[in-house]
Design a protein around this nucleic acid. Structure first.
Lengths: 178, 178
DNA sequence: GTCTATATGTTGATAGAC
DNA sequence: GTCTATCAACATATAGAC
């Protein structure tokens, strides 16, 4: 793994675990195993570091959108299912970016628009598509806000809960298909 | 309005507009129209200020839950409708708390549990109730992340969009009623 | 109850050695 | 490409005047 990627990975981890406040250059450098000077060679400023994260997010989003477009279960179910995963690089990057608040909104909004397009194409009803997108956003929100377990009673924790949720979504998507 | 409340209000506004990073003691004191020393008389530390926000959130949540429990349209529709409002003191406080990330999760999780109880009681189906809660969470997430308009394509912006969404939710809630 | 002044630590960033 | 040393700016918090 390149030093650059290594730094971005460390930045992500700290953002997810401790939020924007914890993601200082010192902390990121320490986690990545380089000095602050070393970090600043790869990213000239903190803003450049954030931009690096957004670029990574865009690249990962392209790959995910492509998979979603051809998912056997359909875009809606794929979207809801992967919203909860948290395991993929894409999910982690997205949650990390969401933690940055302000600056990240436009990058995330662009991805959401593409998600919505795919879901709308599948279900054929604008309101239903938006409802499904919002539902997935809720899962992400819970993932972004409460990584320290315990809270967030609605986010599916077990496979059974996920299947029950997917069933609701599939019904929602199917009922309105034209 | 008491000086204490005034300070908490200023803290909220800055959190909503600029995130955790922007909410320094200096900035809050300036917005509240007091000096840093004056602020620190009412809240002995930054942590105390955050705790003050959480206490305020709890109090506002109690009032909102009571209204939700007796809402004519039902708990589900009330919940989704008010998720988008952003106008009420409660909404503003909740979004501000969400911006704090880490520390806020347990306070917010407690409120979510009470929302879920009410919605489950109404719709009678656990999976559907959770889906509705997640949908509302998605609206909050969009409100919390993207106050600078433009993004967030799924959150209802107009009255028409809201009615369309409410219709979807009502259908979802009604279809599974036992 | 609110102010000014100040102490103390942290953060982002630069310069230059290796 | 990575390190150490250093800086100015800013953050939280305290002390004491009014």
């Amino acid at each position: 793994m390149s030093a650059r990627d290594n730094i971005l990975r460390a930045y992500e981890e700290i953002l997810i675990a401790g939020g924007e406040r914890a993601a200082t250059l010192d902390a990121v450098a320490a986690k990545a195993g380089v000095s602050k000077g070393g970090l600043l060679y790869h990213f000239r400023s903190k803003e450049a570091l954030a931009n690096g994260l957004f670029e990574r997010l865009d690249a990962l989003a392209d790959a995910d959108l492509a998979t979603m477009a051809t998912a056997p279960e359909g875009a809606s179910v794929y979207y809801v299912r992967t919203s909860a995963s948290q395991g993929s690089e894409f999910d982690r990057c997205l949650v990390a970016a969401a933690r940055l608040g302000s600056g990240a909104s436009s990058a995330i909004a662009a991805i959401q628009r593409r998600w919505l397009d795919l879901i709308t194409a599948e279900v054929g009803d604008d309101a239903v598509a938006k409802a499904i997108l919002l539902l997935g956003d809720g899962i992400y929100y819970n993932a972004a806000v409460g990584p320290d377990a315990g809270g967030t009673p609605a986010a599916p924790q077990t496979a059974e809960e996920m299947e029950a949720l997917v069933e609701v979504v599939a019904r929602l998507a199917g009922r309105s298909r034209r």
